[in-house]
Amino acid sequence: MYTHEKQFIQAGKLAAHAKKAVILLHGRGSTAQSILSLQRHLQLEDVLLLAPQANNNSWYPYTFLAPVPNNQPALDSALELVDAAVSEAIKQGVPAAQIYFVGFSQGACLTLEYVARHAKRYGGVVAFTGGLIGAELDTANYQGDFAGTRILITAGDYDPHVPLQRIEGSAVILREMGADVKVEIYPDKPHSISADETLLANEFIFG
């Protein structure tokens, strides 16, 4: 049962001219179009951009800290939509090692959950304010080897939606799966994406 239609905006370079693909996942209450505005701040030249759109602008109904069954079937449907975007990039000739992920807030949580369930060598992963999903983290859900993939997780020190403890716990699991994880926590940062965060993403992931 799907709760999300298989729809995403394609932008940036045509696949024939793209060296990389970036999958961008918007936050709750936002849109694929709005997350695409990050292309003005990230180094995304010669890149195929794919931005899936959540039904009703929300990937799953409750907080990402709720028990996973509470967010079903929306969560599984959202993960399938991300997988469809990955498949589209590969179909257009971009190998997994050149596929990047960028998500904010609810989209950042979905980003980390997807890559942890499908770990392999990706181009890189950026989670602007996010962590792995569930009341408890069940490592049985996660499989594969990141083979050194760089993952950047950023957040404010007292974010109202994403507690620091979950970010740190997520980083431990991702490192155990072979990722090169960088966590950057900013004092008093509001629940948004700052210029400092995009600069760091350019340095650590896209540089």
Rank of each mutant, 00 (worst) to 15 (best):
I193V: 15
Q39I: 06
S58Y: 08
F104Q: 01
V94S: 07
L75V: 08
D76E: 15
D46Q: 14
Y186L: 07
D188V: 00
G29Q: 11
T139A: 15
L25M: 12
G144P: 00
A96W: 00
L110N: 01
L36M: 11
G130H: 02
S105I: 04
N70C: 10
F206Y: 13
D180M: 07
P163G: 09
L137S: 09
P187E: 15
F128K: 02
T154Y: 07
A85Y: 02
V162D: 01
Y158G: 13
D196Y: 11
L199K: 15
T149M: 07
T139K: 13
S77G: 12
D157T: 11
Q53Y: 04
T3H: 09
T149R: 04
D196E: 15
G124L: 12
G103P: 06
K13L: 03
D196A: 11
E80A: 15
G107H: 02
E5C: 09
A179T: 06
F104E: 03
G29R: 09
A85S: 14
A108V: 02
L14D: 14
R40I: 00
A97D: 14
C109E: 01
L152V: 01
Y122P: 05
A89F: 05
R166I: 00
F101N: 02
I99Y: 01
Y122Q: 08
F8C: 04
P163K: 06
S87R: 13
L152T: 01
P187N: 13
V172W: 07
V47Q: 12
K6R: 12
S105N: 06
A11P: 07
P190Q: 09
I173F: 05
V162Y: 02
A18P: 08
A84L: 05
A78L: 08
K6C: 11
L25K: 03
E88M: 10
R28T: 13
S77K: 08
I35V: 15
Q92V: 00
A21R: 01
L200Y: 13
L44F: 09
A140P: 00
R175C: 07
D157G: 04
G131F: 08
F104C: 01
L36K: 02
P160A: 11
V94L: 15
A66I: 02
T3P: 03
A18F: 12
P190R: 04
N141C: 08
G156Y: 08
R117W: 03
P163F: 07
K91M: 10
F204K: 13
L44H: 04
L174H: 13
E136V: 09
Q39S: 14
I153F: 03
F206K: 09
G178N: 06
F206A: 09
P73G: 04
Q106S: 12
T63Q: 11
R150H: 15
G27V: 03
L79E: 05
V86N: 06
G12L: 07
Q7K: 13
N141E: 12
H191T: 00
Q92I: 00
A16N: 10
P61V: 08
I185W: 06
A195R: 13
G12Q: 08
Y2V: 05
I173H: 08
F206D: 08
N202Y: 08
W59Q: 03
F8D: 05
A54F: 04
L38M: 14
L152I: 00
D83M: 03
